[in-house]
Amino acid sequence: MNAPESTTEPKIEISGLRKQFGSNIVLRDVNCTVEAGGVIALIGPSGSGKSTLLRCMNLLVIPEGGRIRIGKDSFVFDGKARLPSAREQARFRSGTGMVFQHFNLFPHMTVLGNVMEGPVSVRNMAKAEAEAIARKLLGKVGLSDKVDAFPNQLSGGQKQRVAIARALAMEPEVMLFDEATSALDPELVGEVLAVMRDLAAEGMTMVIVTHEMGFAREVADRVLFMRDGVIVEEGPAREVIDNPKEEATRTFLSHFHNRQDGPSA
């Protein structure tokens, strides 16, 4: 780790990423990088490709073209090379944690079981060790009293905090958030954002697809605005959200600036 470039090399590097579903082109030549410890917010209208970009980062969606590197792992997609095997994909995914809009907790396992599942099932960790990790993480997200509950006994905010703990149990290098608060009742959004804010403060590399502009502005270092499968504007979070340069960004953000003096469009 004494190589000088290891400190400056971005954690995530994506270049020339292309994806289409049938005739519908979702990503056209997307390039982006995320520094280690960086927090990136992906914003944009629905259908802009931001969720697909996020899902390409852990290969839940396999792109048609381009290159994805996370940490030391990288894959090239050119439509000719053999797709990574199921086992290679699984290993690659184990290095990233993902939090879904609809939580996707495992309903047949307790809260503790959900969080232990990754280490036990993927890492073959001893149950006692995994349980210790799970209890620590559940404490961290404020759910020590819910370890034995089943997911259907939890509120949406609690479910999402369990989902975050479940992802963290794999000790990922990167955390991906796919509209993690969009399915929550407004009064429950805050508790999830608080956990995410703590994670960012601890130096976790995070990519966040979100509609919470206030949160993006406050917590993210950089914001990427996407529309129609391309990154239209990119820059420091406050700059992009407060003073967008592109017309499309301004139009999009005007929907969120109702109570402020929005930029004149």
């Binding site: 839940l60 199921a86 879904f100 907790l105 495992f106 047949h108 479940r166």
Partner: peptide, 29 residues
């Protein structure tokens, strides 16, 4: 729900393990 498999895959499970640990236990019920 497809989200169940996705959650398993995202943890780094192979599709086979997702079937055995996540999908089948719920489906058998």
């Amino acid at each position: 729900d497809k989200g169940q498999s996705e959650a398993g895959l995202a943890l780094g499970m192979t599709p086979r393990r997702v079937m055995r640990r996540i999908v089948l236990p719920q489906a058998i019920k």
